[in-house]
Design a protein around this nucleic acid. Structure first.
Lengths: 348, 348
DNA sequence: GCGTTAATTCAAAGCGCTTTGGTAAATGAT
DNA sequence: ATCATTTACCAAAGCGCTTTGAATTAACGC
């Protein structure tokens, strides 16, 4: 059933039917109801391509997920982010269009979106400190919203971010206050803006406590379980191993826990861990008491909020550039405890 | 730049330019090249909506991800699946359209896709034993391909599945052959087809070994880390606890490991685990020697293959109904070992 | 009762593409 | 040289919608 047929059924013009369906005022209440009832009855919905062609908009938002070339890694955070965003899109009648790129060719995807008019706007995931995508999108005139920020960019743009620096500063201070003096950082790739900020927070806290930090305890890599394991293992094998870790992801924290337990040590007693927790649905961090002490911020909520922001932008509801800075929650769980007398080096 | 402008530039008709771009034969090689060069030079790509409207196709494939209502869980497997599928779509010039539904209203999404012509076909994720979506899609005449199977369905349809039954039969036999006699199953929700098949495989192996299985050791739930932990904890607290577990997901296996270690037991020595491993990118199961003995099958490859199958179908390349049954690999890691004398019940 | 305004409705153009049904020129067969 | 093909191109229709500009009717003021 298309508009033509429906209007024939109703004995009305296409114009009127179209207007009735889209809620324009210049149609009487009676006919509006009649039209809407009929649409429901015949199961009519406007063809999305025809509508898009006529309006020049696509009612779609693009996401491009870049699979890291090094380890072909798909960021686990992505799933929950789109679970949040998708919900919002659906509510506003938008589609989500996902592109997967394997070799950092996101720019080509944006160019294509613009040229072919596939989407009305895009979400930028995982911004780097120096982020060429932002310049490109500005240049193209394709509306966008960034999940995170790019420190290398001064100009205003729409973004939503967790306050990574302050949350890692607080998390680090929490361990230092417990008496820990040597802390390891197991961070994400530090070309990424969020990771750089977390590192800054880590350093801030050391400065606050007038403590020097050992560069040998700064690890940065792709946040897999295995990376957490390897980084923690290496540090725990040092002559004076750290007594606490700050970790940028629950997945890596799980790996670090494995390294700790493999050595016969106990997490929370011998070695403390504070991790960032994105509140992923399949990694609930404990039911009553959290397994990991964590700075927590729901990435699904972030998805929801950022989607709202972008839709407001592309639909013209909001013309000002908005930003949002979320403060993470520091939740105390079983992975942290006070500093204990220095560990004897265990021979593995 | 649109077709009209481009053809004006070239002094050709829109017809010829369109044909040159789409590779139709009735245009001379000389003009074809001239057109394609010009298209590149001016950065022209056909508007996707206009093209869709004219051809009646959308060059898009729909995925609908259903966030479980119970725990608002986003299936972690999903990310890697679409990483595989998206790659294939891009190569074939298709878009991926993702819909998120929170309350199992997938059917409405399919109906909308059909009515509004948003997609040319859909991938069905996570089929149940009794799967109403398949009937609906047949009825709607919307092409589809199923990731998994639905036992309740006899009619032919396009699917790709891992041989879950045989892989769990082999995995279970592996433990039984090691002398284990009491095995726990930590399965996914058994309304889901894959989980039911895995349970069948678990039972098969017991029959093969002429062993009765204890219904108290059959757990089924949403495969989170926490669920793995709770299920394993409960079973390990029994008077005669199992000495081995079969687990349907690495995430739950990680939870089970936590339960084991919390009791001061050692995985692979005191308690064995065989898990299903979807080869998720951020959960690499060990580098040289796997952490977990596992039946492994890359869900990303599955995404690739199924995407190819569906595209062949919707593009009319392939008219026959194809299916694919993948055999999982049994990889032996550090989480399994021979049965040891019965455990003293440890008081926790 | 008549001009004016507001409330409804409509016909037709246009969005940017593909494709049908041609035509004109070039080629081939006889 | 003539007719039948083939080759290379084109004008125009149509995909299903929105929207402009106009027309009709109803309501209103005096």
């Amino acid at each position: 059933m298309n508009l033509k047929e429906l209007s024939k059924q109703l004995g009305l013009s296409q114009t009127t039917v179209s207007r009735a369906i889209n809620g324009y005022p210049e149609v009487s209440l009676a006919t509006r109801n009649r039209v809407q009832d009929a649409a429901r009855k015949f199961g009519y919905s406007p063809n999305v391509r025809a509508k898009g062609l006529a309006t020049g908009r696509s009612l779609a938002i693009g996401h491009v997920v870049s699979v890291s070339q090094t380890h072909e890694m798909m960021n686990p955070v992505f799933g929950d982010f789109i679970a949040g965003a998708g919900d919002v899109y659906a509510r506003h009648g938008y589609e989500m269009i996902l592109s997967v790129v394997y070799d950092n060719t996101e720019e080509e995807v944006y160019r294509n979106h613009k040229r072919r008019g596939t989407v009305d706007g895009v979400i930028v995931h995982g911004p780097l400190i120096q982020e060429p995508r932002i310049d490109l999108l500005n240049e193209l005139g394709l509306p966008y919203a960034v999940h995170g920020r790019s420190s290398g960019h001064s100009g205003p743009y729409t973004w939503l971010d967790v306050n990574n620096r302050s949350s890692f500063r607080r998390a680090t201070s929490f361990l230092l206050d417990l008496g820990h003096q040597r802390l390891g950082l197991i961070n994400g790739l530090e070309a990424m803006d969020f990771a750089a900020r977390r590192r800054d927070g880590f350093e801030d806290a050391h400065k606050d406590h007038a403590l020097a930090l050992d560069p040998a305890l700064l690890y940065s890599g792709e946040m897999t379980e295995g990376y957490g394991y390897r980084a923690a293992s290496e540090m725990l094998s040092m002559d004076t191993p750290p007594t606490g870790f700050l970790i940028s992801s629950m997945i890596s924290a799980i790996g670090a826990r494995r390294a700790i337990e493999e050595r016969g040590l106990k997490m929370g007693r011998d070695v403390s861990i504070v991790t960032h927790d994105d509140a992923l649905s399949y990694l609930e961090n404990g039911s009553s008491v959290p397994i990991f002490t964590a700075v927590r911020s729901s990435v699904r909520d972030a998805g929801r909020q950022l989607a709202e922001m972008l839709i407001a932008k592309v639909s013209g509801t909001e013309t000002q550039i908005k930003t949002a800075l979320l403060e993470a929650q520091l939740v105390v769980g079983n992975s942290t405890g006070p500093m204990r007398p220095p560990l004897r080096k265990t021979h593995t």
